[in-house]
Computed example of a mutant assay.
Amino acid sequence: MFLIIISITLIYLLLIVCFIYGFEKLKPFKLINLPAKTNFSVIIPFRNEVENLPDLLASINSLEYPKHLFEIIFVDDSSEDDSSKLILKFLADSQIDIKVIQNERQTHSPKKDAITTAIKQAKHGWIITTDADCTLPKYWLDSFDEFIQQTEATCVAAPVTYQLTNNFLNRFQVLDILSLQGATMGGFGLQKPFLCNGANFAYKKETFNTVNGFEGNSNISSGDDIFLLEKMVKHNSKQVQFLKSEQAIVTTSSQDSWQQLINQRLRWASKTKSYNNWFGKVTGLIVLLMNALIIVSILLTIFGIVLPKTLFYIVFIKFNIDVLLIYKTATFYEQREVLRSFLFGFIIYPFFSCYVAFLSMFKTFKWKGRSFKQ
């Protein structure tokens, strides 16, 4: 038993150290005011987002990029509120090329269908996807443009975080996404990309068509980002890169309740068994085993099977290496104040993650008013 505990702890420690190394190795990208050249089609699927759209539309209106070089395609996925009316009202007063189209459902994944529908109508060679509950920084497209001009990338992942508010549920989610973003950038820095976020993801339309888009995983409700990343990496890994730029950070909204958060994580978990990237699978397994080890070690300590000092060493190692990765990520995102909630979040997270992993084996989940099977 002791050997198993030590092995899992050391493997986890090595994994997070590698991510920290990769995070540092991935150098920040700075704008140098190159003349804008790249044409973008920005795709935004939405369903019942009337409350979130005003912030997104305001941020679109504030984009500094030349208006003739990009278009915005909103894809209405059977909204039951006034989302489309709100966008059309904004469109009437805007000089930006914006249109609203209806989703053409073909598969079990509404979002993948929405993106595919929009790509067929996209005028430009570069596709960028984001979400309707996001806000975009004013130099968002400038950052992508200069990065594309200075690299040979055909697929670019970029940073995402949650808006930080003054309640624990929000801060818990911010800590979680910072850890995910740290692992994401760490993976790219190690030249083993395995994570990205569809709220800030760009690729050439030509490459999307070359890898046959979402074909092969359309039966899975989520994964419009990671499955496509896997295909892009397999096609040409050297052209898949991460835009580590503070001016490209997209901000999105956290979930408003624990039940919504659990449903979101069940949705994410629904795609994990279909990953083809071995590094991503191994990473997920190691992280889950480490969280489970914390819970098991607590129980074994209570029953006198494991010495209290063994539990202390396990928790001490995990706490310090986790806080180091999150500190580095929080510094990049300028969200270090969230670290005040790290201790409480650290205590809760093993139970939360193992609970979600257990539920994901058999429970259906709801998302955007629809029910999905695992």
Results as ranks from 00 to 15, higher is better:
Phe70Ser: 07
Glu71Cys: 06
Glu71Tyr: 01
Glu71Trp: 01
Ile72Gly: 06
Ile72Arg: 10
Ile73Leu: 05
Ile73Ala: 03
Phe74Ser: 14
Asp77Arg: 01
Ser79Asn: 07
Asp81Leu: 10
Asp82Pro: 05
Ser83Pro: 07
Ser83Tyr: 01
Ser84Gln: 15
Ser84Tyr: 02
Ser84Met: 11
Lys85Pro: 02
Lys85Ile: 02
Leu86Glu: 07
Leu86Val: 08
Ile87Ala: 05
Leu88Lys: 08
Leu88Met: 13
Phe90Ser: 11
Leu91Gln: 07
Asp93Glu: 13
Ser94Arg: 14
Ser94Gln: 15
Ser94Glu: 13
Gln95Met: 08
Gln95Lys: 12
Asp97Met: 09
Ile98Gly: 13
Ile98Pro: 15
Lys99Ser: 08
Lys99Thr: 11
Val100Pro: 08
Val100His: 05
Ile101Pro: 09
Asn103Asp: 09
Glu104Ser: 03
Arg105Glu: 04
Arg105Pro: 03
Arg105Tyr: 05
Arg105Trp: 04
Arg105Cys: 07
Gln106Ala: 10
Gln106Tyr: 09
Thr107Arg: 03
His108Gly: 09
Ser109Tyr: 01
Ser109Pro: 00
Pro110Val: 06
Pro110Arg: 09
Lys112Asp: 07
Lys112Trp: 01
Asp113Ile: 01
Ala114Asn: 14
Ala118Gln: 12
Ala118Pro: 14
Ala118Leu: 09
Ile119Cys: 04
Lys120Asn: 09
Lys120Glu: 05
Lys120His: 05
Gln121Asn: 12
Gly125Phe: 01
Ile127Val: 14
Thr129Pro: 05
Thr130Arg: 07
Asp131Arg: 13
Ala132Tyr: 01
Ala132Ser: 12
Ala132Cys: 08
Asp133Lys: 10
Cys134Asp: 01
Thr135Leu: 15
Thr135His: 07
Leu136His: 00
Leu136Cys: 11
Pro137Cys: 14
Pro137Ile: 11
Tyr139Asn: 14
Tyr139His: 15
Leu141Gly: 04
Asp142Tyr: 04
Asp142Val: 11
Ser143Thr: 03
Ser143Asn: 04
Asp145Lys: 01
Glu146Ile: 05
Phe147Asp: 06
Gln150Trp: 02
Thr151Leu: 05
Thr151Ile: 08
Thr151Asp: 06
Thr151Arg: 04
Glu152Met: 05
Ala153Trp: 00
Ala153Glu: 08
Thr154Tyr: 15
Thr154Val: 14
Cys155Ser: 15
Cys155Thr: 11
Val156Ala: 14
Ala157Val: 00
Ala158Asn: 15
Ala158Phe: 00
Pro159Asp: 08
Pro159Leu: 05
Pro159Ser: 08
Thr161Val: 08
Thr161Cys: 13
Tyr162Thr: 00
Tyr162Asp: 01
Asn166Leu: 03
Asn166Phe: 01
Asn167Ile: 11
Phe168Ala: 11
Phe168Ser: 09
Arg171His: 13
Phe172His: 05
Phe172Asp: 04
Phe172Ser: 04
Gln173Glu: 07
Leu175Ala: 09
Leu175Gly: 05
Leu175Ile: 06
Ile177Thr: 13
Ile177Ser: 09
Leu178Arg: 02
Ser179Cys: 14
Leu180Ala: 10
Gln181Val: 04
Gly182His: 03
Gly182Trp: 00
Thr184Gly: 10
Met185Trp: 06
Phe188Cys: 14
Phe188Lys: 14
Phe188Ile: 13
Gln191Lys: 07
Lys192Glu: 12
Lys192Tyr: 04
